[in-house]
Every structure is written in C-alpha cells, then in structure tokens.
Amino acid sequence: MAILSQLSRDEFSTRLSVDGLPLKVGPYIYRVRSKLPTVEEGIRALYNDFEIATDGDFIDYDIALQQKGLRQHIHRQLEFLFDGTTPFNLIPLGQAYAFLEWGMNWCVSIHANEYLKLHAAAVARNDSAIILPGVPGAGKSTLCAALGLSGWRVLSDEHALIEPASGHIVPLCRPVSLKNESIGVIKSFSRDACFGPVSEETHKGRVAHMKADLHSQSHQRQPLSTTALVFPRYSPDDPQGLNKRRRTDSFLLAAYHSFNYSLLGDTGFNVMKNLVDQVECFDLIYRDIDWAVDAMNTLVEGRHGA
C-alpha cells in the first residue's frame, strides 16, 4: 500500500501529468491527470495522505484538466475531461482547482447509484455517524470543517452514501469546500487548518478547500451506523439552538436534496425510511461556530436534553 506522500516530487509530477495519478477515495478510485501547476499544488496539499491504487486496478472515474491548443491558452481557459469526453463548457484558468474538486463530486453525483446519495456532509465520533444535510449556503461545510478540526472524523463533505442492504453510511472523505466568509471563519477557528489553492470568481464566489483527513481513521472504509440527522442552518439573527424536528419532514427535506432518491424508486423510499426511523432528527441553528461544535459534542455524548 503506497501513500501519495511517499512519492518523490519528480515521480509525483510525472505520474500526475503523464499517466494520471490513481487516488483511492472512499469506495472509489479516481485517476487524475493534469499538467497545471495549481492542480499539482492542490493535490499535494490536500491528498498527501491518500492511498495510491496499484497499476492495473479498475478505475472508477478517469478525469483530467488540460489546456489544449492556442485558443485555450490565449483565452486563459481549460477543459475538464471525463473518460476522454468534455461534458462541460470551458473553464476559466483561475477556477481550475475548484473545478477539479467540483468535477470529482460530479462523477459521483451523476454515475453512482449503488447507494442512496444524500446531498449532505457527514461526520463521526466514537464510531457513530451524524449526517448533516443542507442546502448550499446553509453552513454545512463550515460546520463540517470545524468539526474536522475538533477531533471529529469527516466522512464526507458533499455525499452521504447510504448502503441499501445495511442502511450504513460509506465514508467518502475528501477535502471540504469552503466559500467566501466561511474561509475566514475556519482560518480563525483553528490555526491547524490547511488549505489548497484559492479559486476566485467561481459561480459560488471565492472557493478554497480544506484538508479534511485529519483523523487517524480518516481512510478506513468500513461503513458506519448513523445516530442522527442534523440540519445545520447558519443564521446571524435567529436564536441559536439544537432543536428536535419531525422525522417526516426531515425525510422529505433530505429526500428532496438527495441526488438519486427518486431515481432509486422503491429502494430509495425503503432506505430513507429505515434511516430516518433509526435516528433522531434535529435543526441546528447557529451563528457562533464554537457554540455549534459544542452542541454537536453534547449531542454525541448523550448530554443533549439531559
């Protein structure tokens, strides 16, 4: 088993730019190929502790970021390749790294249907997982990053993968994507936070990714059982609180923001029903990130409501 950090600088660059670097990410293997310095810098910073697959392993998602031809160089644009095809329009050079991470999400969002995929972050402490579903801008990633810096294990920032047979969540740990003000919030939350390249002026504004595999078990693949669904919502005005919410509308909200609940039909309904039925559901309204982390600690230590 080889870890990325074990490669020499030259070997790393060569593999990334020529054949592609096969990274083991949760249950999948991505092969990433790019000659761009910003991609090299980002992968180095954020994926250094990831395992590299062996030559000849089956590749789940083959992706590349490249600048091809004079036209793309002049216009400072590049293209994203999936399986050798270009599913998206050209990307401004300054957004290269954010787009790579976004493209890696897209691979799973579009192609994987062996799991129920919730649009959610997921974290764990003491082997019990908590799923944080959230609409964009609700503050799930900020909370996820802060928890990752507070001894929690980050299971995912974007996809909570629920295995239909067991109902357990399958870890898919990748860097946490932070936008605009939340970058500063996390930098002042902890000096240990390690960031990749910053992309300016994306459709989400300013985007930076935080290294999230900080826990000793970050790269373990065993599925975990879930104990709670917590719907985080950052609000500067509302009173902070961790409040129980109904299972039925938690079901509906999580299903609505799922990537493939309706695609899965009966399976989607059954998996969601079993999941929601076995967990407690909460709203977490916060403006102070330290308070929110405390509330999550309280929840997992069983002190909530005591």
Partner: peptide, 21 residues
Amino acid sequence: LPYAVSRHWTSGVVIHEKQRR
C-alpha cells in the same frame, strides 16, 4: 464480475428502470 466493476453497470440500469417507470 467484481462488485467494484459490476456496480457501474447496475447504476446505469437504475436510470433505465426509472425512465421505464
């Protein structure tokens, strides 16, 4: 086929079945 391979095909079939319904 190994599960890591076959799941890509079953994932594709899921889309067809949804369209069929």
